[in-house]
Computed example of a mutant assay.
Amino acid sequence: MLRAFLWKPSARKCSVDAAFSQFRLWRGMHSRNKKAMEFIGKGFSALKEVDRVIDYCELNDKRLIPLLRTAKEHFELALEADNSNTQARYWLSKLHLKYHVPGANKAVGAALLVEAAEMGDPDALYELGCRLRVENAYVQSDQQAFYYLEKAVDQLHPGALYLLGAVYVTGDCVKQDVSSAIWCFHRASEKGHAGAAIAYGSLLLRGVQLPESLTKFNVKRVLSNRKLRNNAEFNPIEMAREQFEIAASAGCDLGLKWLKRLEEEEKKLLAPDNGP
């Protein structure tokens, strides 16, 4: 009894000390992550300015060097502040692989990209999958690209969803599966991907049947919307129009062309017959 009585205060003290040390660890991680995100924000701002003007000058224009150097320094500082930050790795890899930044090294960029992908960053997974799609006689790049793209799809990356949907439609390196392609285009379109919205709408106009998972979702959405309750039937034209509107809202000219074409076809159908 006395031993139990003496043990309780010590056990409480140990638990309090453990909780306090865990709190300090969490606070330190939060502080490092916050500092890293500040550096990433500054680096991204500089890189965004480069992307804004790079179409109007040479890729190795000297006027871009200060901005590129600023972006590189801030991404490196972000990694120093938080070595586990995948976004810092990803953006630093893009600088090495894509831009003419002083001190750029393709091997370093590739290593950073692979590290970020292995750590689960969706942008890095998608980027690596796209780069592995390039033919390589020494590496089974198609299988590896598909592996990384699937990992990015698991995190619902819109670009990866669109690309995987295109792979399923064409049957390139996988068995052709239109239902899976429709699902990929649908999820990417929900995230505002213009290309996926165009592909989804085009397939709907071709009369492709929706998979059961999407038809259930559409029925729930219709029943929850009072305006659509009276017309709960599957209407591929209206669904396609909705997809083209998503593409048009994203700034895609092809979406506007499809909307115009649908409007013209509707006018032809509604016009009175001028025949004898």
Rank of each mutant, 00 (worst) to 15 (best):
K267M: 12
R24V: 10
S45D: 11
K48Q: 12
D142I: 08
G41D: 12
V16K: 15
R261E: 09
S179E: 14
I40D: 04
E242R: 11
E49M: 12
L256V: 08
W91K: 07
R261N: 10
E150R: 14
H30N: 13
A181E: 09
F44M: 10
R261S: 09
L95P: 05
L270N: 14
S21W: 09
T170D: 12
D154V: 12
A152F: 10
C130N: 12
D253K: 15
E264R: 15
P236C: 08
R221V: 04
G165N: 02
F44K: 11
R32E: 10
G109N: 07
C130A: 08
F185I: 06
L59F: 11
Y56V: 09
Y90V: 00
L269V: 03
P236L: 06
L77W: 00
K94I: 01
L223K: 06
A248T: 06
D142P: 10
A271K: 11
N225P: 02
A4I: 02
M119C: 14
S45N: 12
N85I: 09
S10T: 04
A36N: 03
L214V: 03
G165D: 00
A104H: 12
K227P: 01
K260S: 13
K94G: 02
R241A: 10
P236A: 12
E245Y: 03
V114I: 09
E76N: 08
F217C: 06
S21P: 01
E135C: 04
L269E: 13
L113Q: 05
C173F: 11
E238M: 08
T70C: 13
A71E: 01
D61K: 08
E238T: 03
D121T: 06
N235C: 08
E263P: 04
R89P: 00
D82K: 04
S202P: 00
G251I: 07
G255I: 00
K42M: 08
L269I: 07
G41L: 11
L205Q: 09
F75V: 00
K98Q: 15
E118V: 01
K267F: 02
R131W: 09
G41A: 10
P9L: 04
C57N: 01
K268E: 15
F234K: 08
K191F: 04
R12S: 06
N105L: 05
E212F: 02
L25W: 10
A160L: 09
Y56W: 06
N231G: 02
K175M: 05
E49T: 15
S180F: 03
E76K: 13
E115Q: 15
Q22G: 07
Q87E: 14
G207Y: 05
I40V: 13
A88G: 13
N136C: 15
K260T: 12
L92W: 04
A137L: 12
Y138C: 13
H193A: 01
L68Y: 02
K34V: 05
L59I: 13
E233M: 09
L254K: 15
L77T: 01
